[in-house]
Design a protein around this nucleic acid. Structure first.
Length: 200
DNA sequence: CCATGGATTGTCT
DNA sequence: GACAATCCATGGA
């Protein structure tokens, strides 16, 4: 496993930026969740930015019980329940009180693939997994939380604290392409979605 | 390939 | 009481 020589202060610098600047810089970084079952991690491959002056944001109408973490310090996890059955995870960004964050929409599983597979498909990891199903494992915000077993118990966790069960690890810079956000009905013209361009 | 509809419940109006 | 920062299966071109 590669560890980067770049100090973790870089992640602090990243999450203190406004969400649209932080979002592309979070691509390529590793999201890790350690549970009693084991460690599963993924390289972030798709993100979206949200901030308060943005009608698509959960913080647009001010602070509520659900979104209060987004108004807190950067680098904490805003986890919410969506469509009655899915969890989604965001990294809070920018200055305290601004209500901004980055939604993690997809990862590429990096460690703990067999555990992630079982959580998603409720079946033992096969001998010859199809490439399609490996891709489908965590290519959506609800799939990411299923694969990493992220739910309300991770609400508000400091993901920049290496002692946290849910945390970010800095890997390095990444190339990205930018598009409008998806799955929303307002703010659809704002191009605040970024996808990792897998380099080699 | 693209479009559509059902599942299911917390949150806010 | 409406709707949602989704996923999956299905059906048609």
């Amino acid at each position: 496993m590669m560890t980067s020589g770049i100090p973790k202060t870089d992640l602090h610098e990243i999450v203190n930026l406004p969400a649209p600047q932080a979002a592309p810089l979070l691509l390529g970084q590793r999201l890790v969740h350690e549970t009693a079952e084991g460690r599963v991690s993924g390289i972030i491959t798709e993100v979206e930015a949200y901030q308060q002056d943005d009608p698509a944001s959960h913080t647009f109408r001010g602070q509520t019980t659900r979104n209060r973490v987004m108004f807190g310090r950067a680098g904490h996890a805003y986890v919410y329940f969506s469509y009655g059955m899915h969890w989604c995870v965001n990294i809070v960004t920018d200055q305290e009180g601004l209500g901004s964050g980055v939604l993690v929409r997809a990862v590429r599983i990096d460690e703990g693939l067999s555990l992630a597979w079982y959580r998603r498909y409720k079946e033992i990891y096969p001998e010859q997994p199809s490439a399609a199903r490996v891709r489908m494992l965590s290519n959506g915000p609800g799939k990411v939380t299923q694969a990493l077993d992220i739910n309300a118990s991770s609400y508000g966790i400091d993901v920049l604290d290496e002692l946290s069960s849910l945390k970010l690890e800095y890997v390095g810079p990444a190339n990205s392409r930018q598009t409008p956000r998806i799955g929303i009905s307002k703010g659809i013209d704002t191009p605040w979605r970024w996808l990792l361009i897998e380099g080699d």
